[in-house]
Design a protein around this nucleic acid. Structure first.
Length: 417
RNA sequence: GUGAGUGUAGCUCAGUCGGUAGAGCACUGGAUUGUGGCUCCAGCGGUCGUGGGUUCGAUCCCCAUCACUCACCCCA
């Protein structure tokens, strides 16, 4: 038997209805905040991600689905969305527009990780990007939007973590200090941290091991090294959050795994997700456009894991309201089925949610099926009815039944039986 | 890539201290010649993940392998 690839899965009804509701809510909220949808290709030149995400990141180093096209170009299934959005912005010369560009995307991403709770190889992200503004207020506005969205779909109990990781001017100084500090206490850290000391020192700050915590707490904090503009930016950002009554926790150890982030970074986490507790991750990436060979362009955005959000969403509890047929057409015998299917066509053209089954069934089993589907009414089409032109229309709620002609069916359904 | 746990009916699971398996739900039919839900009765459905070993005999014990799950790692 052929099965779905590891780390991928089918979203079947009625779960697909939950996805639709969540996506619909996202579109509404984003639209209200002035974001338009962008749809970029699911595969891109490998180079885009190698440069945009950072060659040293785990994503690029060992998680991408990369393959050679027939003309030997190296292509990659997108592992994230921001690089593509910035690529599109540059490619279409959108910096010529005077206004800031606000777009969102919604779709599958691909990373070859070991699957676990809340983590898949094909997973879905909702992301939004604001290009062309470095104002801290836009950052608070984006977080405000996320709050509204999470609230609307019934995700409670989240925590907002914020930090600033400085910029190209002030971060190198911090990194040097950090490395010096790390070299002094390296022997008191766990195996993983020792490795990180060399590969990605910032990540040591993010270690979750109990034993490392006292050591990590003594390490220098990036916030002490911010230069004046970065300091000011961060303070203003926090001020905008406070004025919106958005609670947050400053986590100087919050660093992002992607290289292009500058200044503001944030994460929204939740208990109840297991180990993969990040619902949303985002931040500012003023350096990305240049890395991709374009004009310097300020950018700020987030990505949200839809699987994770849906895992927490109360939407799943709601019974599927859509999908119940107003009318179930029950044909008895093959000649009746032919006529019944034409009748169904007419009902549907008039907007009636009409279900027809083509299996040869007894009336009893047809009604059983209608009941299971929670059909509102059943129209019985048998030999006798075709002769007389009068069809029993049965209301399932109370079992009441009337005789109607074919042309009366729709008006009967619409005018309360 | 590493570790742990779990693989028995479509689903959720029981069970056999080694003698080729059962429940509930679901499905089909009947009780009601063309009338659902409740109830009752009957039926359908399993190479006990796969391969090998031990044994007279393995779903059960051993080994390997695959799949799934969770965790590490990393991240959404």
């Amino acid at each position: 038997m052929i099965k779905a690839i590891k780390g991928t899965r089918d979203i079947l009804p009625p779960e697909s209805a939950v996805w639709n509701r969540v996506e619909e809510t996202a579109r509404e909220v984003l639209s209200v905040y002035g974001f338009s949808e962008i749809r970029t290709p699911v595969f891109e030149s490998t180079e885009l991600f190698a440069r945009g995400v950072g060659a040293d990141t785990d994503i690029v180093a060992k998680e991408m689905y990369t393959f050679d096209d027939r003309d030997s170009r190296s292509l990659t299934l997108r592992p994230e969305g921001t690089a593509s959005v910035v690529r599109a912005y540059l490619e279409h010369q959108l910096h010529r527009d005077p206004q800031i560009w606000k777009v969102y995307y919604l779709g599958p991403m691909f990373r070859r990780e070991r699957p676990q709770k809340g983590r898949f190889r094909q997973f879905h992200q909702l992301g939004a990007e604001v290009l062309g503004s470095d104002h801290p207020a836009i950052e608070a506005e984006v977080i405000e939007l996320l709050q509204l969205f999470l609230d609307r779909i019934g995700v409670g109990e989240t925590e907002l973590l914020v930090n600033s990781i400085g910029c190209g001017h002030c971060r190198p100084g911090f990194l040097r200090k950090l490395q010096v500090a790390l070299s002094e206490i390296e022997d008191r850290l766990c195996q993983d941290c020792r490795r990180r000391c060399r590969s990605n020192p910032l990540r040591v700050l993010d270690c979750k091991r109990e034993a490392c915590q006292p050591v990590i707490e003594r390490l220098p904090s990036i916030l002490e090294f911010l230069d004046e503009p970065c300091r000011l930016h961060f303070d203003r950002f926090l001020g905008y959050l406070e004025r919106r009554d958005i609670g947050f926790r400053i986590v100087p150890r919050l660093v992002r795994g992607l290289d292009y982030y500058t200044r503001t970074t944030f994460e929204i986490t939740s208990r109840g997700l297991g180990a993969q507790n990040a619902l949303v991750g985002g931040g500012r990436y003023d350096g990305l456009a240049e890395v991709l060979g374009g004009q310097p362009t300020q950018g700020f955005g987030f990505a949200l894991g839809l699987e994770r959000v849906i895992l927490l969403s109360r939407q799943g509890d709601r019974p599927a309201s859509a999908g119940q047929p107003q009318l179930f057409v029950a044909p008895l015998g093959e000649p009746a089925l032919d006529r019944a299917s034409l009748m169904a066509r007419e009902f549907r053209r008039q907007g009636i949610h009409c279900f027809m089954d083509f299996a040869p069934r007894s009336l009893k089993s047809a009604l059983r099926l209608a009941n299971k589907l929670q059909a509102g009414h059943v129209l019985i089409v048998g030999e006798n009815e075709l002769k007389t032109g009068q069809f029993p229309l049965k209301r399932m709620r109370d079992g009441r039944q009337i005789l109607v002609s074919e042309t009366e069916v729709v008006s009967r359904l619409e005018n309360g039986f």
